[in-house]
């Protein structure tokens, strides 16, 4: 059923199909499944980060720490594997626990001291970047056989494409995110909080508990993204993923989530991340444009979606007043 709540995500889907259709029409190489599977792999870490960000933005908050978290987790993993000789599986486990813990700490500060998420996560952003440098100043390779083994897992698809481990992990995390958002009480509490936090409290939503869980979840997803990023690049670098938090926010908004919270879908975020990837791929296929055109296109799309949402909100208000 088409209702006003689904309009933004439908617009996102339309933009996705149009861009992809344009690519298939214009370039022969675009029609191969390889392009699609590469999109999944190359944008996996961005989409995973953005899924966590979706919950934060749905609740009316923001998390600026995710980019630094990716770098920090990567460096931490590299340290644990190379310097202590730990098995990568344990290292990943520890990295995830650390990510969740740091997210939860930020959540506690936001919930109990009632400080804006913007400033708390900004502090987190500097802090994690600093911690990454504390461990390691330079880029280091992660060349454990287990990691390269993961990287090499590959399920071929018809055509030249195939699903990498990274792509599959992203899809699993996407499915998990969709389930959490729409099929758990926690998920509905997130929507309620973003819709109207005062009413949510009166309706019996455990506000503080939910806020802490939201940032812990975002911590989990960005730590996961850090792990994926480390496998993807096979290295760790304290300056990695600078500005990814902003790309993630852009993916969430282009995916149709209302920046003021309460309305949006995790699947939209997936499309939002993929759209950014398609734009990049199209520019690569073109060959005559430099990569900064990506930023231009993403900026334009972002503006379009924000205006679209404003328009819808205005329209709904006008209709319910009549």
């Amino acid at each position: 059923m088409i209702n006003e709540r689904n309009l933004p995500i439908l617009a996102t889907l339309l933009v996705f199909i149009m861009l992809y259709g344009f690519g298939m029409y214009e370039y022969k190489g675009f029609r191969d499944t390889l392009v699609f599977s590469n999109l999944l792999t190359d944008n996996a870490f961005l989409i995973i980060t953005a899924i966590g960000m979706t919950f934060v933005i749905l609740s009316g908050g923001i998390d600026l720490s995710v980019g630094s978290m990716i770098a920090f987790i990567g460096v931490l993993m590299a340290y644990l594997i190379s310097n202590t000789g730990m098995h990568p599986l344990f290292a990943i486990g520890i990295a995830l626990v650390v990510g969740v813990a740091f997210g939860a700490i930020m959540g506690v500060i936001i919930a109990f001291f009632e400080i804006q998420a913007f400033i708390v996560t900004l502090a987190g952003m500097f802090l994690f970047r600093g911690l990454a440098y504390l461990i390691n100043l330079d880029a280091v390779p992660i060349d454990h056989p287990f990691i390269t083994g993961l990287y090499d897992i590959y399920v071929p698809l018809p055509g030249r494409g195939g699903l990498t481990f990274i792509a599959m992990a992203m899809l699993v995390l996407l499915a998990l995110g969709i389930l959490i958002a729409r099929r758990t009480r926690f998920g509905m509490s997130v929507y309620a909080l973003g819709g109207d936090s005062h009413s949510a409290a009166l309706l019996g939503v455990p506000v503080k508990k939910t806020i802490i869980k939201i940032y812990a979840l975002s911590g989990f997803y960005s730590a996961m993204s850090g792990v994926i990023f480390a496998i993807y690049t096979g290295s760790a670098y304290p300056l990695a993923a600078v500005g990814v938090e902003l790309d993630a926010i852009a993916a969430v908004v282009i995916g149709g989530t209302l920046l003021t919270g309460g309305v949006g879908y995790v699947f939209g975020t997936f499309l939002g991340g993929m759209i950014q990837g398609i734009i990049q791929t199209l520019i690569t296929f073109d060959g005559s444009l430099n990569s900064w055109w990506t930023k231009l296109a993403v900026g334009g799309l972002l503006l379009f979606f924000i205006l679209l949402q404003k328009g819808i909100v205005y329209w709904v208000k006008k209709r319910s007043a009549a």
Partner: peptide, 19 residues
């Protein structure tokens, strides 16, 4: 003042926390 969540569906509002 209606203390429900305006951006959620009627069903989601009615069952919030009691799903």
């Amino acid at each position: 003042e209606v203390n429900l969540i305006p951006t959620m569906s009627v069903m989601e509002n009615l069952t919030l926390q009691h799903q």
